[in-house]
Amino acid sequence: MSNSNNCDNCPVHNKENLIKLGLNMEQVDYVITMAGNPNTGKSTVFNNLTGLHQHTGNWPGKTVSRAEGGFIYNEKRYKVVDLPGTYSLLSTSTDEEVARNFILFGQPDVTVIVVDATRLERNLNLALQILEITDRAVLCLNLMDEAKRNNIEIDERALSKELGIPVIPASARRKEGMKELLAAIEEVAAGKYVCKPHKIKSRSIKLNNAISSLASKLAEQFPNLPNLNWVALRLLEGDNSIIEAVQSGELGSINAGDSTVQL
């Protein structure tokens, strides 16, 4: 054992640790979700992880509802939920609501944000919004092969430092970067990597005050909710679906770890 190849010992390169489970998702240890802009390759990453053949296509808006699958990695069972691609989590179209509600109410253990490396700035808009809702995420910097073709270079370390989450370069169509992605997912899921997600900096003092005042009141009502500031901001903006969730107390039903919330 001690003499064996280093790569075999390193968790990152131990491919044998991945067992694709397809649709078998019983007794999962962790729930992870794939989110990102349309046409960034979420479904391709999903297929690589689960061994399923969810139809992929080169056009935005192909995935309209959630797809689910599973895999085992290092003896832990994971359930993966593939969400429809969206440009933001702000507006109220059906696909954006599916994505937002799952990240908010489904409380996945890890959210894998799949971004298009050739359109990083636009993709970061969504990534930053996701980081406001959840603090456990991994950024999959997909389509690196195309970025290279377009002479784009990305400093992953700087990006990771700014966002406060692991950043994994990948080319999912060529199955590159998947092992590293799995390792990062495991670290975040198991709590070995503690994310310090980026919070939006350029906000007025007045707005920040209003947010923290509301958030402290929300904390009394919904003590286990991890994303109080975000909920407070949505209330301030007058987001109807969130207002209803507060009014009915539905927002609190996730406190008890109740996973049967209907989305």
Partner: peptide, 22 residues
Amino acid sequence: TVIESIYEDASRIARKAVKQKG
């Protein structure tokens, strides 16, 4: 303004991380 501040941060981070060669 909420959306603007998100865009502002996104563009600042992208400027730091992305380099376009040629």
